[in-house]
Write a protein that binds this DNA or RNA. Sequence first.
DNA 1: TTATCATATCAGTAACTAATGATATAATGA
DNA 2: TCATTATATCATTAGTTACTGATATGATAA
Lengths: 126, 126
Amino acid sequence: MLLENGLTSTALKAKLFRGFSDNSRLIILEALQTGPLTVGDIVKTTGLSQSNISNHLSCLRDCGLVSVEQQGRFSYYRLSDERVAALLNLAGDLLAEVAKGVYECTRYIGPTKSNSPEIPLKIIAD
Amino acid sequence: MLLENGLTSTALKAKLFRGFSDNSRLIILEALQTGPLTVGDIVKTTGLSQSNISNHLSCLRDCGLVSVEQQGRFSYYRLSDERVAALLNLAGDLLAEVAKGVYECTRYIGPTKSNSPEIPLKIIAD
DNA sequence: TTATCATATCAGTAACTAATGATATAATGA
DNA sequence: TCATTATATCATTAGTTACTGATATGATAA
């Protein structure tokens, strides 16, 4: 389907998946699966820098994956819909049963610098 | 959870989502939702170049999202599991009802060169 | 007001990756 | 064998993007 702006629905879907495809964003989304959190809470639980988290939250908010509620100086973030969590869980199932190869995949979908282990990849399941 | 190689399950999940986060890969996956196709079939239906498609298929195959069956000179590719299609469909639901903002989002999750419309983005839903 | 706290914004940089074009491999048919 | 077909591989390049550090905004309290 071609939309009025020239983007196909497939291109939009790819953009949506990009929201989930970054390690830091995924860490944030999974932290929010436990319930609403302030930015400070997320800083504490994830160890990511404040500006990094704010940048990602801005992105996730614009895309509609999370929502915010202001309370004084605090911003409470939460997942905007239970289907966001459903997508995360379905991906977990895929990872466990279907997409085990992701573990060893270093082509295109390579580990980012911050996640690169010094030790070489090693298969722990057979 | 920290795995033996230093990768967390969250980092693995991010890698998995990257398989779905590229426009060309998604075009290929959605083409395969109609059934098994050869590389040549995918070239015809998508208009992408052969080497580009082969590169992406190699990636998708390594990760376990698609599987191949060789028949003579032809390689028949198909989605490896119905849950791959399920994830695509769930993303479609999210796009329609929750993540409408992706449409306008130009921060981080920006349109790639090949998908950039010359005309500016315009909201068609209110 | 002034200081402090919580969060947001932004430019610059380093790193990542998709696409191309050339080439390699491998199977089939003449 | 030689030509053709189908697919795979690979280096290069151009474009994308995550992170940092500095700064801005805005709310609360002293």
